[in-house]
Design a binder for these strands. Structure first.
Length: 548
RNA sequence: GGCCCGUUGGUCAAAUGGUUAAGACACCGCCCUUUCACGGCGGUAAUACGAGUUCGACUCUCGUACGGGUCACCA
């Protein structure tokens, strides 16, 4: 077989050789220990928490070491491509504070190791492909999908390892004449690796999170270039990560089964292997079973969902950090005010086992982070979020910024800030009663209390409320009213003998709160009444007393 | 089914082969308290199972079970 001849027959237009590529993509000039990582999504426009988990790992490794973090778009399959998908991905990661040093941009490239879209790198791949053919390490295969199906069915019937190998690899040793006959007939072909592996061979491989893993050598003649001349993931991975000088490949562990093939590819191509970090997966509980997140089935794990729900970007990142490095929480506790990027992230602390996503935990982090916002930041973040997701609320807030800030400032700033707000989408139910147009009676008055009794309390309070009283006097008055209407002013005494009273001062407070805010749960009432102002407070209470 | 990865409370998880097996979230209780919260204190709850190595095993080895992943001209 004249391999040189075959190579030219298959790829007549390719006039470059691997050496040209090596020169075009020289080793990066980086300090010792600098890591080069990449985020390499397909342009579906959709990224979920699992992707963020990996992207954050990449980003930290690169930027913590003074290296490079780049974006490569794996668009070798046009079926997966979504209009504007690249932009969506870049924008969303940007919103979450993940920024690239180089790579694909919404309308082009930024950096000297591109193009960063695999669809535009055909010539690069074919240069290496042609070289492999020249060396007898790859060959064309003219099998149709039907042929391959037939092979697989037969292998399944005989309980053999499925795949294109051994006697099934009918084009592996085809002669030049039959190849030329197919070519002349215009039949499409894929280029396959002439694997040198033997079934059953095994060896160890070192993964940075999984440790020593058992590899069963590849012996399948996998596809390198599809019939459109574009590579599949595997070949593109080897060529790109070599040329782009990636030092650490971070990807989720579902790639582990194809690692043997990748190892063979790097060897055959003469490339030095990068370090691999196969990350555990973020799982969800589905019908009692754990499974990895799916784009199709789990829209609630899309990053856009977290964004629209109003989790501040840093919250999701903080949560990811707690999953990535378990000592992050401890560090955060000791350094509540430092940016998370100050944390010494390490691959060594990454767990090899998958984890279930925990909304309770995320919510707790979110509450804590939001409770530490200054009023100014709370206001600007709220408005920014609301403009996009609750325009009516945004209008109310921006129409009277001082009023909105007063509302948002309740219980904020002290040593023990309130944690009323978990996500920005809570804002509406947190603040609606401050606006007459939004005020509704959300919770009913409990019917264990006589209507007459409630009315008596409310009327009395409406009559006596004095806005100039300080906090202590204000409460003393509530106590006094409680006492005069048969409610126990002291909680301890009430608990000791509840049967002696109509209720407690807690119940009196509840009546006022319900009249004032329409709900059982609200921020500090003294603050609420002062923000609403005397007239509105009193008229709401009086009105409610009359309606009952 | 083959191959690969994994397994410490409900969840995330910490423990150079020697600990009373941390901590956080959730849950429960108590305290604080003017309600709602915040906060403080405390509690329930775990090394999948079986062998082996060892003076000693969560930790090392093997097996079993269970869970997950993967077996495309998709990534």
């Amino acid at each position: 077989m004249d391999h040189e001849y075959l190579a030219n027959l298959l790829y007549p237009d390719i006039d470059t050789v691997p050496d040209d590529m090596e020169k075009a993509y020289p080793p990066r000039d980086l300090p010792e220990g600098a890591k080069v990582t990449r985020f390499a999504p397909s342009p579906t426009g959709f990224i979920h928490l699992g992707n963020l988990y990996g992207a954050l790992t990449d980003e930290r490794l690169a930027h913590q070491s003074g290296g490079v973090f780049f974006l490569r778009i794996e668009d070798t399959d046009s079926k997966r491509e979504v209009e504007g998908g690249v932009e969506l991905i870049i924008d969303m990661l940007d919103k979450f504070g993940i920024h690239f040093d180089e790579g694909a941009t919404s309308d082009g490239d930024n950096g000297s190791y591109g193009p960063y879209r695999q669809s535009r790198r055909k010539k690069v791949y074919q240069t290496y492909a042609k070289d492999l053919v020249r060396k007898g390490l790859a060959y064309p295969c003219f099998c149709t999908p039907e042929d391959l199906n037939a092979i697989r069915e037969e292998q399944e019937r005989e309980k053999l390892t499925p795949g294109y190998y051994g006697k099934w690899a009918k084009w592996r040793d085809a002669d030049l004449d039959s190849i030329r006959r197919e070519l002349d007939a215009g039949r499409p072909f894929v280029l396959r690796l002439r694997s040198e592996g033997h079934e059953g061979d095994s060896f160890k491989f070192d993964d940075l999170v999984k440790g020593k893993i058992d590899i069963t050598a590849n012996f399948i003649d996998h596809v390198l270039l599809k019939s459109d001349g574009i590579p599949d993931y595997h070949f593109a991975h080897a060529v790109d990560d070599h040329l782009m000088r990636t030092t650490h490949v971070v990807r989720d562990e579902s790639w582990l089964p194809s690692l043997p093939f990748h190892i063979e590819l790097f060897r055959v191509l003469g490339f030095r292997m990068p370090k691999y970090i196969h990350t555990a997966q973020v799982l969800k509980l589905d019908d009692g079973k754990k499974r990895k997140l799916s784009k199709r089935k789990d829209p609630e794990f899309a990053m856009s969902f977290f964004y629209s729900r109003g989790y501040p970007a840093e919250v999701t990142l903080e949560y990811m950090m707690t999953l990535l490095n378990s000592n992050f929480e401890e560090w955060r506790n000791a350094n509540p005010d430092l940016p998370y990027t100050d944390f010494p992230f390490t691959v060594k602390k990454m767990s090899p086992s998958g984890c279930l996503f925990d909304f309770d935990k995320l919510n707790d982090i979110s509450r804590t982070v939001i409770s530490r916002f200054s009023t100014e930041k709370m206001y600007s973040s709220s408005v920014e979020w609301a403009r996009e997701f609750d325009p009516e609320l945004a209008d109310l807030f921006t129409a009277n910024p001082d009023y909105a800030k007063a509302i948002l400032s309740i219980g904020r700033g002290g040593k023990k800030p309130r944690k009323d707000i978990t996500v920005f989408s809570d804002l509406r139910s947190y603040a609606d009663f401050f606006f007459d147009g939004l005020f509704v009676q959300k919770d009913p008055f409990p019917d264990v209390f006589a209507t007459e009794k409630i009315r008596e309390v409310l009327s009395l309070y409406a009559d006596e409320y004095d806005e100039s009283e300080d906090r202590d006097m204000w409460f003393a008055r509530i106590k006094s009213i409680a006492e005069r209407t048969g409610f126990c002013p002291d909680m301890k005494e009430y608990k000791a003998a509840p049967e002696l009273y109509a209720g407690s001062v807690a119940d009196v407070s509840m009546f006022i709160r319900l009249a004032l805010t329409g709900r059982l749960n609200s921020p500090d009432m003294y603050d609420v009444m002062h923000i609403l102002g005397r007239d509105r407070s009193v008229s709401r209470i009086r009105k409610k007393a009359e309606e009952l």
